[in-house]
Design a protein around this nucleic acid. Sequence first.
DNA 1: TGCCAAGTAGACTATACAGTCTAACCAGCT
DNA 2: AGCTGGTTAGACTGTATAGTCTACTTGGCA
Lengths: 200, 200
Amino acid sequence: MSTVVELPPDTRQRLLEAACDAFREEGYQVSIDRIAARAHVARQTVYNHFPSKDALFAEAVRHAIQSVLITLDGDGATRATLLAFSEAYRAKILSAEGIAIFRTLTAEAPRFPALAKQFFRQGPQTTRKRLAEYLARAMEQGRLKRDDPDFAAEMLTAMLADFDRLRGLMNLQTDLLKPTKTAQVVDCFLRAFAPEKDMP
Amino acid sequence: MSTVVELPPDTRQRLLEAACDAFREEGYQVSIDRIAARAHVARQTVYNHFPSKDALFAEAVRHAIQSVLITLDGDGATRATLLAFSEAYRAKILSAEGIAIFRTLTAEAPRFPALAKQFFRQGPQTTRKRLAEYLARAMEQGRLKRDDPDFAAEMLTAMLADFDRLRGLMNLQTDLLKPTKTAQVVDCFLRAFAPEKDMP
DNA sequence: TGCCAAGTAGACTATACAGTCTAACCAGCT
DNA sequence: AGCTGGTTAGACTGTATAGTCTACTTGGCA
């Protein structure tokens, strides 16, 4: 058994990332042995770092959750800002990774309710809140119809992802990224939330 | 072991329904023994009717898929019609059953791609198509903005379900049915797709 | 040199489960 | 009474897996 040895230090880090990838790609079912193999590590080493599979799963998920946020900078024109956000949102949510994380979490939510809640709050909830804050400002300034900004944020994110995410979850198509779609959605949103009497 | 005996005939039917419930509630992992127990049937009987667990799962899913469609009758006013459809859509999609089916299928789609495809086409795809047909008519008659009806249908269904479904999938809240929400969404949709110059 | 911490290989236990097989059971029917 | 077809309980096989234990290696460091 000759192993090409150029393994960087932090065994634990390698392990965590391997676990992340493994759980993402194969779900919770993936065996500890497979994870150990992925990390080029002995099974016992896994148990040296994490007390149980569940604990490892929890750590891996929390680790994966870090990268779920989308920022939006409210400098430019309303449409341009929303377009940039929307593009980034779709790119993240509809990527193979995004779909896989969502699938794994959906499947295991009943067994790990605390994890699910944490994901929900740190991911979608926070994203919606930030978007809502931006929209609230735009509404105050008369750039958008005065309405419930949380509701508006929810509508926009829903329109951006729902059906295409479903396709991804059902393992259909990778042409998820029809490039005109984002603009189409944003314009639809802007129509629904256009200021009531053109200018103040 | 005294069993209260009032078991209706069709063993196979009972079995299928038990499997449906079991897979829905516990996912594919549920053991054949548990399914057999639920159906008040011996394990061997399961194998008398279905060659394997996979086959049983496939049958059960196909059976469950039947009830996923929502009809809409295009007689009344546009808003009233869409409201009725939307209410029905949310009720079905966000019910405990709807969420559970979605969860199980999402989890197993990679392993049963054919099933996933069938579900997608018979469920969401067909619903969207029917809605789109209705919207197309409304567009022709000038009751809605002339636009891509498929896109419009996708937006409406997305707005109706996306975020609340996520809550359900993550095992949060059952107050999914805030009764004003449907109307709020429909009105938002109507704003986005209002006919361009009020009347023809 | 000798110690130590981290890692390793692999045997081992216990459990769960899919799927098979057998022998008995019990209808209804002839 | 005896046959037949669906049903049943339970033993059995084989496999996969979580988690433990032990004896070994190895690199750094005092």
